[in-house]
């Protein structure tokens, strides 16, 4: 299952709830303000690093670039463009958007 998160971890609990409920082996795609969670030095960094042993974590490059954060992506996070976003949706049986 693909989990899509679009809210900053500092503002909303969407990522936290996603990590709490999501089953091992799934994928997490961070888009819009959620890309801040995938950057070095953010308060949710360790949380996300722990999650990487259970999930594959992706972040949307255009959203990172727009926010000037593309140089600060944590190691282990795979960045994808819009085409990659579509591929991820197509590769998974179902997906859940954590609003």
């Amino acid at each position: 299952m693909l989990h899509i998160v679009n809210k900053s971890p500092a503002e909303r609990n969407a990522l936290e709830s996603c990590l709490r409920v999501a089953q091992d082996g799934g994928a997490i795609l961070l888009i819009e303000d959620a890309v801040y969670a995938a950057t070095r030095g953010n308060a949710a960094e360790n949380h996300l690093r722990d999650a990487m042993s259970r999930f594959k974590v992706y972040a949307l490059a255009p959203d990172l670039e727009a926010r000037g954060m593309h140089e600060r992506v944590m190691e282990g996070v795979t960045t994808v463009d819009y085409g990659g976003f579509v591929d991820l949706v197509a590769q998974h049986k179902n997906c859940q958007s954590w609003l």
């Binding site: 409920v21 089953q23 179902n94």
Partner: peptide, 17 residues
């Protein structure tokens, strides 16, 4: 949360509100 996560995996469509 684990039971819920499993149930979510089984769905064809998940709608968020």
């Amino acid at each position: 949360r684990a039971e819920l996560g499993n149930l979510m995996e089984e769905q064809d469509v998940v709608l968020s509100f």
